[in-house]
């Protein structure tokens, strides 16, 4: 994985597979504290304590199509390479929160990549799932909530090709505004 937005695309697939209907993403940049946090929470079926323990093992997967599962181990590796760590909290029947903390200024900390595009791809390709994406930079904050977006669109689907590009633009513009 070359950047954090690719990790995001990857980890959210776990939430989707877990049957989540609401996925909350937090990207928190705190250069002053030398910390960057990327956290993904869902209301999917959750995992048992035993599964949580095994999930960072590349040879553990819930799938039957293949024998390895690299999403979480790679995410953990990226976090640790920057002096950070990965934490997973999960409750069966309630959901899972996966949080990766990165050393902000560490040379091996992956760049953000195109986060607005990643969020747009997730939203448009999973129209029945709701997403809340929060971007923080220092004190600034922007929240993109698909429940509000869907209301504003009044029945025009979020995966309508003419609409999709505007969603990305909206996220991207607001992220830039928060950062500047």
């Amino acid at each position: 994985m070359n950047d954090l937005s690719l990790h995001l695309l990857d980890i959210v697939q776990n939430s989707i597979t877990a049957g989540a209907t609401l996925i909350t993403i937090l990207l928190d940049e705190q250069p002053g504290d030398d910390r960057l946090t990327l956290s993904i929470s869902d209301n999917g079926r959750g995992m048992t304590a035993e599964q949580v323990q095994k999930v960072t093992d590349p040879y553990f997967t819930s799938r039957t199509t293949r024998k390895v599962g690299l999403g979480i181990p790679l995410f953990k590796q990226s976090a640790e390479a920057s002096g950070g760590h990965l934490d997973i909290q999960s409750t069966t029947g309630e959901g899972t929160t996966t949080t990766a903390v990165f050393g902000y200024s560490h040379l091996d900390r992956l760049p953000l990549g195109n986060m607005a595009n990643a969020v747009m791809l997730l939203v448009s390709s999973n129209p029945v799932i709701d997403f809340v994406y929060t971007y923080r930079y220092n004190e600034g904050e922007y929240v993109f909530d698909t429940r509000e977006v869907k209301e504003a669109l009044e029945g025009v689907p979020v995966n309508e090709p003419q609409i999709i590009k505007y969603l990305e633009e909206m996220i991207s513009e607001n992220m830039q505004a928060v950062k500047s």
Binding site: E148, V149, A152, L153, E154, V156, E160, Q162, I163, Y166, L167, E169, M170, E173, N174, A177
Partner: peptide
């Protein structure tokens, strides 16, 4: 496009 209102306008257009 930046706000939900901008999005509403675009939606009508589309």
């Amino acid at each position: 496009i930046k706000s939900l209102n901008d999005l509403r306008k675009i939606k009508q257009d589309v």
